[in-house]
Each structure stands twice: as C-alpha cells, then as structure tokens.
C-alpha cells in the first residue's frame, strides 16, 4: 500500500508539472468566467441572461466533459503509458520496489486524482460565477445536485482512462494511442447510429453518467449504468495490467 501511494504521488506530480494539465486547468477557468461574463453582459444589454445563472455549473461541466476532458484524459493517459515507454522515462518507475501491477494502478489513480482536482477547481469557479447575479435560493437548491454531478463525473472519466491505458499497451507512441482512441470513438459512434440496439453495450454510452445527478435522481438508472461502468472498468483494468506486466521495455 505504501509503494502504491508513493507511486501515485509521484505520477500525480508528473501530471501537475505537465504543461497540458496547466493549459486545461486555465481553459476550464476561462470557460467558466466566459459563460458568467456573457450572462452578465446579456443581462445588462439584452434585458435578460442567456442562461439561468444557477445552471452555469451544469453548462460548463457538460461542455468540458463532452470535449475537453475526454480528449485531455486520452492525451494524459497515453503520455503516462506509451509516451513514457517511447522516451524510456518509465524506467525510473520500473526499477523501484513496486510491482508492475501496482504501478499500473497508481498511474490510473494519479490520472483520477489530477482530474478530480481539475473538476473541483472548475466546480468552485462555476459556483461562484452562478452566485454572481443569480437567484441565491435557486443556486442553493441546485448546489447538492451539482456537487454530486461534479464528484460523479470522475467515474466515467476514469473508465475512459482505463480503456485508453489498455489500448496504450499495443503501441509505443503516445500520438498513435490518441489516434487509435479517436478512431475507436468514431467507430463506436458509427456503430451506435447503424445499430442502435448495441448502444447500451458500448462503454462510450456511459461517459455522460454524471448527467443523471443534475435534477431528480433515478437510482435504478444510476446503479444500472454504474454497474456497466464497473464491469468495463474491471475488464479493461485486468486486461491492461496483464499486458503491461508482460511488456518488454
């Protein structure tokens, strides 16, 4: 456990010192402030806001989780696995007293931690933005739902990181892993359009799982989808860590 946590800490440090992470963090701050500013300006000039101020956290989370965060998760995961293998920097971690399986899990944990910090930062900024010029009582009413949505948003993101880590085991180039993941996403999207009946079985279906927490909670749907996420998570974690264990560096 000690080595797992130490390794997770080391990997998190690596992510925090990554310029991509800093750029994404400031992008999320920018999106939050932009949404809030547009609302304030439209309120003054057009006589009413474009968005309900209280829904800014949901708007930003949807925007971020539909494009920025998945793309960033894929890039980050491919950097931590195939990227480190290609530039051999993974050797620094592999020659420490930690098994490969623990190292694999610690990298996933580090991705989860850093994205959680990102979501937390975004949540705080968007909440402040929603309170400025918004209906305070309505904002407070929505607050518990948004806390749940932001916390739960990490679950589908982790699944995406786990799937990316699995595919990263087949390449020694981080950009190739990103391309593979984009191709797989396109393929899945095409499949779900041609054969809608396969949609529930596709892992990408559950990437918007957090949207279940925006208003009234349908527990049956939430648990049902969570089980799918867990099943895919377990399968891809075992398969990925097995391939990582076997890999020659």
């Amino acid at each position: 456990m000690h080595t797992l946590l130490t390794s997770a800490k080391t990997e998190t440090f690596k992510i925090f010192s990554n310029k991509k992470y800093v750029v994404l963090f400031f992008s999320s701050v920018f999106v939050s402030l932009f949404a809030s500013s547009v609302n304030l300006i439209s309120n003054r000039k057009l006589g009413g806001p474009l968005l309900n101020n209280a829904t800014i956290p949901a708007f930003v989370l949807n925007f971020m989780s539909s494009l920025f965060i998945p793309l960033f998760t894929i890039m980050l995961t491919s950097d931590l696995f195939s990227g480190e293998i290609s530039d051999k920097s993974i050797i620094m971690s592999l020659v420490r007293p930690i098994t490969r399986n623990k190292l694999y899990v610690s990298k996933i944990l580090a991705i989860g931690t850093s994205l959680f910090v990102l979501l937390l930062g975004t949540f705080i900024i968007t909440e402040i933005a929603s309170f400025i010029g918004g209906n305070i009582s309505y904002c407070l009413e929505k607050l518990p739902f948004y806390i749940m949505a932001y916390v739960s948003a990490i679950v589908p993101i982790l699944l995406l990181a786990i799937i990316t880590a699995f595919f990263a085991q087949f390449t020694r180039s981080s950009s190739l892993t990103v391309i593979i993941m984009i191709c797989i996403s396109l393929l899945i999207s095409t499949l779900t359009i041609i054969f809608p009946e396969v949609t529930p079985f596709m892992p990408t279906t559950y990437l918007s799982w957090h949207q279940n927490f925006y208003s009234s909670l349908n527990f049956t749907k939430i648990i049902n989808e969570l089980l799918y996420i867990l099943a895919y998570g377990i399968i891809f974690t075992f398969a990925g860590s097995y391939l990582f264990y076997q890999k020659d560096i």
Binding site: T3, T6, T10, F13, R96, I98
Partner: peptide
Amino acid sequence: KLISGYYR
C-alpha cells in the same frame, strides 16, 4: 525526494 519515497 520523490524517488526516496519508494523506500521506507
């Protein structure tokens, strides 16, 4: 310091 963390 980061590396020494691996060793108790």
